[in-house]
Design a binder for these strands. Sequence first.
DNA 1: TTAGGGATTGTCT
DNA 2: GACAATCCCTAAA
Length: 204
Amino acid sequence: MNSVDFSFLKTDTAAAAKQLLGMEIITHIDGVTTGGYITEVEAYLGLNDKASHTYGGKKTKKNEMMYRTYGHIYVYSMHGHHCMNILTGESEETPEGILIRGIEPSIGIDIMKKRRGRDTHLTDGPGKLTQSIGINRIDHNGMTLNNNVFSIRAGKTPKNILPTKRIGIDSKEEAVDYLYRFIVEGNPNVSRFKGRPAEDYGWK
DNA sequence: TTAGGGATTGTCT
DNA sequence: GACAATCCCTAAA
């Protein structure tokens, strides 16, 4: 197994978010394997970020897993969907994480179609990709990276990374304007994709 | 092709 | 009872 050094998740969450782009997420769930290359992420900077679930040190049953350290994942549910975060920071003082919003399917595409109940738009949104690769809050919230169920390894390299405003946080005042969403420019597997995909989907 | 609103479910106050 | 880091269908240009 080619393992990845996750120490880049220790300190700067926004910088770590950009480094996750292109890495391959793989899950082994219900006896089948699915995976994809990360195309879209958003950084949530914990205590001082009004859009973060942990703004001001708020702690509830829903978000308590965000206080774990880097190397764990945080899964929450809303509107009947599940969303997945890669946690960052070395201690309980940094309840920060990176929301995975889009991946490009690479393994088990037929299984994703079956889980989604459709043939298109399998992984171009945070609730869609968790359904495609079989992640849910009950079974996977708080688990560690790179075990028998969930792993991340080196994948592709983005040609260009485009910073944008985050999506779905319109009520969060000044945090609306922070450029903490990063996408692989030209890749169609991102939320609200418009226009035409790049010839190479934005990979080097 | 894009914009708008209803669906839907667990969690918090 | 209200809200949420969403999704999907419909309507109209």
